[in-house]
Design a protein around this nucleic acid. Sequence first.
DNA 1: TTCACACTGTGAATTTTGTAACAAAATACT
DNA 2: AGTATTTTGTTACAAAATTCACAGTGTGAA
Lengths: 206, 206
Amino acid sequence: MTPEKTVARLSLYRRFLKIAKEDGVDNVYSHQLAEMVRSTPAQVRRDLMILGYNGSPQKGYDVAELIKHIDTFFNTEKIIDVILVGVGNIGRALLSYFRDGKSHIKIIASFDKDETKAGRVINNSRCYAMDDLKNIVAENNVKTAILSVPATDAQSIADILVENGIRGILNFAPTRLKVPSDVFVEDVDITMNMEKVIYFSAGKKK
Amino acid sequence: MTPEKTVARLSLYRRFLKIAKEDGVDNVYSHQLAEMVRSTPAQVRRDLMILGYNGSPQKGYDVAELIKHIDTFFNTEKIIDVILVGVGNIGRALLSYFRDGKSHIKIIASFDKDETKAGRVINNSRCYAMDDLKNIVAENNVKTAILSVPATDAQSIADILVENGIRGILNFAPTRLKVPSDVFVEDVDITMNMEKVIYFSAGKKK
DNA sequence: TTCACACTGTGAATTTTGTAACAAAATACT
DNA sequence: AGTATTTTGTTACAAAATTCACAGTGTGAA
Ligand SMILES: NC(=O)c1ccc[n+]([C@@H]2O[C@H](COP(=O)([O-])OP(=O)(O)OC[C@H]3O[C@@H](n4cnc5c(N)ncnc54)[C@H](O)[C@@H]3O)[C@@H](O)[C@H]2O)c1
Ligand SMILES: NC(=O)c1ccc[n+]([C@@H]2O[C@H](COP(=O)([O-])OP(=O)(O)OC[C@H]3O[C@@H](n4cnc5c(N)ncnc54)[C@H](O)[C@@H]3O)[C@@H](O)[C@H]2O)c1
């Protein structure tokens, strides 16, 4: 399987390739792409190897073609439907973030235990009661969820998600979820990120 | 210098140690800590080595003592002052997130170019006009910033931050900032995180 | 037609990260 | 006291990720 790091970088490459394409750039060299994402040419070429798409020594990589290959790799020619559970501060921010149609990721429904939220449309996405989760996930064959409930509730909600067929979770709660090995969890841990910044910027230890 | 991964894990260990302490746990073994953070005992012991604090073979690690050593490592016995630029959707969520005094990270001021926000107190943190940034950063000797402005403005604001003595930036904009080598940038790239989830959960490729 | 050039793709070398193994230490039991 | 047990700290080993370095290639200038 492709290493996580490579997958992450491929996602980055594509973002910058799309910007370049908008700007009318037709082809890029590995060193240009490296410059864009603050990496190295060797790293870029190594990563692109796994796409099975070859650039040419003369023209570098065809931007449109490369984007297409990354799309294929991610299997995102089609829109990916996602649900979000926990329409609080961060949940609402995320709804707004993914609202712009630019992305191929679409939050088709959100859920909250707060009955006053359920039924309302928040940031273009209808908020449902937790009881509706089962049906909506099943009907839309949703496989991916964003989890933004308080840490105390994260595990129990994760259990419900898994039970209903969710296979991938983007988790914002500062907890380490326990899930079956065939479910992928990606933690977004902002406190940890912040502490890294503080550590590495203080004194800038070598 | 301590590897990034280790620093990240030390932050995690501390979080769970604090929870354990709250629960009245006095000492932990490496395998218990590993269980909490979903890691391995060997990894835990290896990480803790760099703290220069030794557990005992019989009692494992003293929870309070270990927390203290991690605090020392992070140099966070004292409160760390941080500023935030860009009081939009995600900015407000972050203000709320760090608002609870539990953390040793404190957002002492936020900034926005929007004049209607400047002057108001949002989530316990006063929002200032950009013009005030220079003085507030200098007066409080702030070294760390959270950047949550639109991608189009991120680089120019980063330049201002660096100019005013900021040495570490937690960046939420989907851009790769160009900063001097003695400034540390940590990117929080949610689209990328989401794409990782989608990739690794789809079909669960091996 | 040949040459010089600038770049790719990829094995090999290097560096980084994680895992396993085990001697040494502390306790409890006999 | 001596022995069995448990867990640590550290070293040795393995795996993964990154970087190096260079042969191979199409292009255009001479
Ligand atoms: N706010 C941030 O910037 C931020 C940053 C990083 C991580 N987080 C984490 O994200 C999570 C949410 O943070 P927040 O600031 O949005 O909190 P919040 O309190 O504003 O929102 C939580 C939401 O989840 C809902 N909820 C609670 N229990 C639920 C349950 N069992 N089922 C369904 N919905 C439930 C609540 O009704 C509320 O709407 C927390 O775990 C927090 O630690 C937040
Ligand atoms: N909303 C999310 O959940 C989310 C998630 C990930 C990343 N992001 C990124 O975070 C950034 C902010 O997102 P958002 O959703 O909060 O956007 P937003 O538009 O709600 O907020 C942006 C804020 O920045 C302020 N601002 C704009 N230009 C500025 C400048 N030059 N100087 C000072 N302040 C300025 C605006 O007045 C506004 O208050 C964006 O780069 C976005 O891509 C957002």
